[in-house]
Every structure is written in C-alpha cells, then in structure tokens.
Amino acid sequence: MKITRQAFLALLAAAARAFPRPRRMAMAIDLAKCWKDRGCTRCSQACHAAHNVPQIPDRRREIKWIWKDRFENAFGEESASPAVAGAPVPLLCNHCEHPACVKVCPTGATFKRASDGLVMMDEHRCIGCRYCMAACPYGSRSFNWSDPRPFLRTIDPAYPTRTKGVVEKCTFCAERLARGGQPACVEVCPPKAMVFGDAADPSSAVAQLLQTRHAFRRKPELGAGPNVFYLL
C-alpha cells in the first residue's frame, strides 16, 4: 500500500495531536527586583496559606515550601561576593530535569509529570522513608514529624492538609495551573520578581528571559538540571 503525501501529513498531524509536545515549566526569579524589599515574605505567606503549610515553632522540624536563605547558603560561600553576601534568596523545589528524589523514591510517591515536568508528590502513597530528603541536594523537602493540624491557625478547605509521617514540598501550584492560573508566589510577588511559564516554548516570557538575561541555578555541577533560574 502506498501512502500519499497528503495522507502522510494528516497522519503526522494526528500524531502531533495524540502526543502533544511536552511542556517544561520553569521559573525565573529576578533577584534585583526581589531585593527591593529584603524583608518581604509575601511569597512564602501566600504559598503556605494556600497549601495549609503549618507554622511549626521548632525550627528543626519546620515545614516550608518556599522560603528565603542567605545568598551564600543558596549558592555556596565561593559564589558570594560582598555585593550579594547575606542577601536573601527565595528557595523552593527546583522541579529538576533529573530529580534525585524521584529516582530514589521506593514507591513512586514522588514522580515527574511527563506532560509538563512538574515534580509531584502523591501524599496518599508516601511511606515516610525520607530517602527523598537524603537525596535532594537543595533541601526542598519537609517531613511531617508530627500531626501538622495543631500548627495551622486557619485551614483553607480548598486544599488538603497532610498527615504525620509523610514528606511534602512545593508543587509549582499544580492545582492552580490546572485552572489556568499562575503559582501563588508568582501572583502575589509585589515587584513581580518571579516569572513562570513553559521554558520549552520559545515565545513564553520565561524562555525570553532565559534567552536574554544571565541566568544561573543552584548546584548545576550535580547534573540535576533545576528548573528554577535566578537572574542577576
């Protein structure tokens, strides 16, 4: 049987529809904009309220999805010139291209979504072995050492809490993306320092930024391929 040129193209188009080009969701954080107000914690507040992240007084047991740490702690002593030393850098899950946490998870409770590259947590499946916490080179994961609910002042019923004994982390607001929204931190950021989108789409704002600005990532030498970029 011979396939006509027209039929071949039609087949290709059908295949493209059936297998859409995977997106690669990424975030670029413009540190100069972020540093306009170094004491600002709006991103963590918005995130933690939206996702019922508890405020645990014992710092050793805290749970955090997005938080700030000093520049040299985020990028290493060697990379911090006096100009940036001590400056607060927003840190969150990097939704890596090759996530170590996904590789080590013995149940597939944490997995990388093929459609958009989000590193997801299935809290229903997590057995609490904390192997992902040992594997993550960025300290992005938190464990519920005890029941989180007593540490929540208010609970937003639109999002579940977690139980004791499971690991959690930032999900790039998968639930908001599903409704066509942006991550809570991106939306709330007063100086609009965070830009989020599909880095695989050259016309997206985040792809444009990464094309034109100097962008760097945490611990690139480990080969994890973080999808959170910092601009300076």
């Binding site: 208010t154 609970i155 019923p157 579940p160 809490t161 977690r162």
Partner: peptide, 11 residues
C-alpha cells in the same frame, strides 16, 4: 479526613 477538610467546618 486526616487530610481532606470539610468546607463547612474548616476548623
């Protein structure tokens, strides 16, 4: 209900 919350009684 250990995680999911009753919207009528969000504690």
């Amino acid at each position: 209900w250990n995680c999911h919350v009753d919207p009528r009684r969000p504690q």
